[in-house]
Amino acid sequence: MAESVYLKLVGARLRGQMSYRTSFLLQCVAQAINQLAELAIILVLFNRVSALGGFSVAEVVLMYAIAGTAFGIADMVAGQLDELPTYIRTGTFDVLLLRPLGTLAQMMASDLHLRKVGRIVAGLVVLAYALSRNDIAWSAGTVALAVLAPVSGAVIFSSIWVTANAVCFWVVDGQELANTVTYGSNAFTSYPITVYGPWLRRFFAFVVPGAFVAYYPSLALLGRPDPLGGPALLGWISPLVAVAAAVVAGLVWRTAVRHYRGTGS
């Protein structure tokens, strides 16, 4: 019953966004171009080099495709959390609190960024291509991983989005810092983590669990050992990391909303 409410909210968004049809279609196209532009950049680089951080073009494209698809899904579901400062400033957040539903679910459902579909579709196309171009030992395990990796990645990205933006409940100008973490982790995860220096890697791979979005799952799919010496198991635990990240994000959001309402401050 409760789920159907959210479905209805999503459906309403669909109708609302479609009311400017040309603009909506253009935005979808722009999102797809955005996604493919990132691919183009990788191809341009590999036009001049044969390996990046010890990985071939097909391997890097695989990582990028998983990360790009995951980010596209997360951006669609959680991207409107970027609007949180506006919600707070204009009092729209208060309106959400006046309804008999959870605030996070309402924010996500009531302003779904459907135009991101363009990005997701482009990401999936590239992913299919990358999977076919790499030498993958297909088994039940790798098939499951190929499906689960973008989904877990999306959950991880969404959790990052929620956690980072919750800062805005405390710091009014926290938006830019939140963006550094959300969009920064997207930029980070599209390439093998071997290209980054130790500090960037520590932060974006493990504090923010970015390495579990694309890097480790790709290693497992490719059957390659981690050049950085991590155990092979890391490639298979992304779904668990995703669940953990979601739990943390949920707790952070709850604390943040309690702070906003003035409990215990």
């Binding site: 159907s4 409410v5 909210l9 309403a12 208060d94 309106v95 006046l98």
Partner: peptide, 24 residues
């Protein structure tokens, strides 16, 4: 609230009402 809206600005009134019916 006189100065903030609980309606969905890009939807017809009727759709906003339908949504609120579901929400409540």
């Amino acid at each position: 609230f006189g100065q903030r809206s609980q309606l969905w600005w890009d939807l017809p009134l009727r759709d906003s009402f339908e949504l609120l019916r579901a929400v409540y």
